[in-house]
Each structure stands twice: as structure tokens, then as C-alpha cells.
Design a binder for these strands. Structure first.
Lengths: 244, 244
DNA sequence: TTGTAAGCGTTATCAT
DNA sequence: ATGATAACGCTTACAA
């Protein structure tokens, strides 16, 4: 693997000059640029990322922690991140949290250790405290899909309460009086916040919400299907044809 | 960010000693180990991965290039890689090829530049020559789902021809005489190899294979569904009830 | 067992 | 415009 030194020798200039043309410094002689460039080609030179990171105190990677790469939800998330990362010539360092606190913690540490200054973290298993501590340690860390008041400016999340409230109110405004709610049985804020939004909307409109109107199911297509079947077969709800 | 130097000062030893306990070198004094460890805790020291990589000439990352992270197929692939990577305390550096030759090339270069010595590459768009060149440059590069004779020991791939041959022969052995083939319209080896295997099996068993028996469809659930509909509605094939 | 010091490949400061 | 050179944080002979 050719180093900057090799290129300098091959091009007959100093390494400082080589560094200048690599980094497109304005103070590089036209002649030098030329010879350095051909030298780089000849030796198929690649700047050493580690050395660069060491001196510049920042890698060109963006760390992303998700719960499970094989879940299409996270796949899409990663892909979106990658698309903007690519525009800035950065790679992604991926960590898997496996929906487990220990694994999440370990992954975040690994990601921080590896020198990424930008971290996009999707963590549901870790406690607020730990995440706050990490956020304090890493100024470029951002939480996605999670809201922690103490570090709100680092959080990007849905307003689940409001979303569920709006959806419920939308149905109410369309004349519905019996609205059921199928929720995920995941014990995370998303689930409880949405449920709360649903209940609040019903309450604000003086609609009843007997327990039989809501149930919790496995978070999957199949879970939702079974939930619907349960609601319909129990006679709690019934189809209403035409429009909303 | 505390450095090894800070730890050394705090622990009252030399940086060499600190380095030794970090790397669990056998020649580290019991007392030193103790004081260094508490010093590390106090300063919440994290070894600088770049510096380490620079001197040891190898990062602790495994690079993976896939066509599209948001595709569950690749998601599972990445997850599997991650699981063994995690056992070795390594992260994944992910590249997206986007089914495009330029993007694939660019990604591989980025991954190599970033210092990963282990590369798992899934490339369908790049030509053999380019991949061979990359393989030569990076001794730790491995091709997945692709077979290139010149670097066969670096390839991990299905024998698509044989697989299709076996599947076809299986049907033949079960008494079938009219066997259709719905293929992907992706212009990649996988598709043509499988098709060839299918044809060879028919030929070896002296079965007819009129053009109407095979067609190419979009690579998706819907594509396959439409393919079946076409075959059935054209009367090329028909259902046969019971067993194989 | 421990410390000193050279060196890894770059960048950036300072002269020239 | 160009070249020495220190520095980045760490590992590893080599000495002691």
C-alpha cells in the first residue's frame, strides 16, 4: 500500500505538497499538481483513513444504531441515512441493538469508540439516564424515534399521542361513535402514548370506551389480523359499508 | 476525551504500561493493572480506534457491500454477518451498491480506503475484471453470491445451474412432463444459470421445452403472481390436484 | 516488570 | 509555492 511518502518521492516533491494537492489546497503549484496526480495514479495511492482521522480528530463515518437491520423498517431508515451520507462522502457504521439493553449499550460504546462524531441512535431498551449520559459525552449524537425532555433538542420523534388523537378525532368527525383500538403489546412509549391519545380523543368527545374496545396484539401483520378477527367475531364491532 | 497519556499520569505509570494492561499483555504488574484500571474508569477513557488502526494497520471493522439495505434479503444477510462480527467485537461498515456499477465501485473504494481489511462484497453490476482487481488489492475481500473462476477461492455462491437442475429433475422424477419456468427478468448470471439448469434437465430427460413454457417477469411477489396467471390463463399449464 | 523512544500516515504550522 | 517538522494517540522493540 503506497503512502504519501511514496507519492512524494515518485513525484519529486515533499509530502507537504502532496498533502496539498490531495486536499485541493489553493496554494499548490500547477506543475506539482500534475506530477503528484500522475504519481498517485501510478502507485494507485489511497489516503489512509486512520491517519487522517487521527490528526483531524474525526472519521468520515456516521454511526447508526438500529434494533434489527433485517427489519425492513430499519432497512429503510438506514437506506435514507445512507443516501444523504453518500452525498457527503461518508459511510455508515452500523450497530444492532437486538431490542436488548445490554446489546444497545455495548453497540453505542463500540460506535463511539470507533471515532464517529455523528451518531444516529434508535434505542428503546436503554433508560433515559443512560442515553442522556451518552448524549452528553457525544455532542453529535441524536436520538431517533424517542423523546427525552432533558435532551429534547437531540430528539427526533413522532408525537404519538397527537397522532393517535388526530386519527381518532378524524373518525369521530366522520360520525363514528364506536371506535376500537388495536395496539402493539410492545411495552414501549409509542404504544402507551398512542393509546393515551386515542382515549383522550374519545373522552374529549364524550364517547364511551369500554375495555372491550381495545386490545393488544403481537406487533406483526398476523397480530393485527388476529386482532381484527377477535373484534369482529366477538361482535364488538361490525363492518359498515361505504365511505368512512 | 482522555488519552492514554492522561491515564498514565493518573495511574502514575508510563503509557507503555497502560498500553499493556489495555491489551492484556502478560507482562503487566498486578499493582499496575489495578491502578491503571481505576484510572481508566475515573477518566472514562476510550482507546482511540484511529490511532490503534494506524499503528496496527487494521481496523476492527468488517465492510459489507450490499445492493440495497432496505431489501429484507440483504437485511438478513447483514444481520447474519453482524452476529458473527459481534462475537469478535467488530463493527460493520455498510455500503450500498444500489444495483449500479458506478455506485458499487465507489462504495468498494470507500470501504477499502476506510481501512477495513475484511470485505464482504455483493456485487452484480461490476464486471469480473474490476472485481478481480479489487480482490487482488484486498486480500481479505470475499465475493458473496457471485462466482468468478479466476478467484474462485474468494467466492461464496450458490450453484444456480445445479439447483435449478435438481428442482426440475425432482419434478420429472415425480412424473411431470410439462414443466414451466418463471424466471426473473434481471439480467444477471443467477437468472441465466438457473434457466440453463432447467433446460438441461429437460433435455437430459428428453422432455420438450417449447418457448411458451418459460417466461420472464419482474422480480417481485407481484411479478411471480402475474407469471402464474399468464401461464394458467394461456392454457399452457393446468392445475393437477393432489401431491406432486 | 517497567520505561524510553521510534514509528504508523496524515495534516498543519512555520520558515523559506 | 514549497519544504521541514511537530503533533495526533497508540503499539512495540529495546533497554534497564
Amino acid at each position: 500500500m503506497a503512502t504519501i511518502k511514496d507519492v512524494a518521492r515518485e513525484a519529486g516533491v515533499s509530502i507537504a505538497t502532496v498533502s496539498r494537492v490531495i486536499n485541493k489546497s489553493p496554494k499548490a503549484g500547477k506543475a506539482s499538481i500534475k506530477s503528484v496526480q500522475t504519481a498517485m495514479k501510478n502507485l494507485s495511492y489511497r489516503p489512509n483513513a486512520s491517519a487522517r482521522a487521527l490528526v483531524s480528530k474525526s472519521t468520515n463515518t456516521i454511526a447508526v444504531l438500529v434494533s434489527d437491520v433485517s427489519d425492513p423498517f430499519f432497512g429503510s431508515l438506514i437506506k435514507s441515512v445512507d443516501q444523504v451520507a453518500r452525498e457527503h462522502n461518508k459511510h455508515l457504521l452500523i450497530g444492532n441493538g437486538y431490542h436488548d439493553a445490554d446489546a444497545e449499550r455495548e453497540s453505542i460504546e463500540l460506535l463511539i469508540n470507533s471515532g464517529s462524531k455523528s451518531l444516529i441512535i434508535h434505542s428503546k431498551a436503554l433508560a433515559d439516564d443512560e442515553l442522556i449520559a451518552f448524549a452528553k459525552e457525544a455532542p453529535g449524537l441524536v436520538l431517533i424515534n424517542r423523546y427525552i425532555p432533558e435532551i429534547s433538542e437531540r430528539c427526533i420523534a413522532f408525537d404519538n399521542f397527537k397522532g393517535a388523537y388526530m386519527a381518532t378525532e378524524f373518525l369521530i368527525n366522520n360520525g363514528h361513535k364506536h371506535i376500537a383500538y388495536i395496539n402493539s403489546n410492545h411495552n414501549i412509549d409509542d404504544a402507551s402514548d398512542r393509546k393515551a391519545g386515542y382515549l383522550k380523543a374519545l373522552q374529549d368527545h364524550q364517547l364511551a370506551h369500554p375495555p372491550s374496545y381495545s386490545l393488544e396484539v403481537e406487533l406483526s401483520d398476523e397480530g393485527g389480523r388476529l386482532g381484527m378477527i377477535e373484534l369482529l367475531s366477538k361482535g364488538v364491532l361490525y363492518y359498515r359499508s361505504g365511505g368512512l
